[in-house]
Amino acid sequence: MKYSQRIWVGLLFCAALMIIPDYGSASLRPAPDGASADEIAKRSENNLRSDRTVMTARMTVVSPRITQPREMEFTSWEDREGERSFVRMDAPSKDKGTGFLKLHPNLWMYIPRVERTMRIPPSMMLQSWMGSDFTNDDLVRDSSETEDYNHRLLGIESEVDTHPGREAYLLEYIPHEDAPVVWGRILAWIDVERGVVLRQEFYDEDGEKLRTMQFEEIRQVDGRWLPHVWRMTPENKKGHQTTIEIKNMDFDAEIEDDVFTKRNLRKGTR
């Protein structure tokens, strides 16, 4: 065989290796109950959200910048179908009454002390929300983890940090090409039995991990398994961590349409 022919055969061989699927990896392992990745993702989201939800929570930010953790309290109203939500700060006193209103695709913020409403442009969705490690996007969930992403089941793991002994699906979320999302890839560990998310890792488009969210204190509320503590740890800010602790959650709540108005935003305190 001529030298050039040998090179060609070699190249073909390499190409063949690349197309042959990797049967050994966990990627094609089916879920034991036959659930598809999409169904698992959907079930997980439904554990955290209903059509209309009211939530009261406390947020704690720790950082090397400050000696005392910064604590805030807020209430949020969400209308999932209408793609609108409303958040009002309840504490500390400096921020009391500060409100956020999302009427898709717009986000407004109202600051009662200066009596000003400010529109937050889409380019600012990744900015820190109230100095925490959560972003404006997290707050108003402008993107949907079920609708804007393709889901793929990577396998099943049984050691998810604070949940020893619980089996969890490892799901990979890759955004649709035209989806208005901010992450390049999300990994989610979802409890096999309860369908509740235990841990999420967020990556940028270059595959670099940017932050990790851990879900703890999982208890049932209105028949849903709800994590009551959400802990966000950014990768690039050393020593920073934000914890949201859910104090009260009303699934399928009655919310008047008046809540999602600029008039309500400007009302300041309830």
């Binding site: 910048r65 910064r70 400096k94 600051i111 200066v114 400010m118 100095g131 925490s132």
Partner: peptide, 16 residues
């Protein structure tokens, strides 16, 4: 104009 940002203390900073 309204300036809004995050202070070094991580408090929200706003001022006209």
């Amino acid at each position: 104009v309204l300036l809004y940002g995050v202070a070094y203390s991580l408090e929200s900073a706003y001022e006209l």
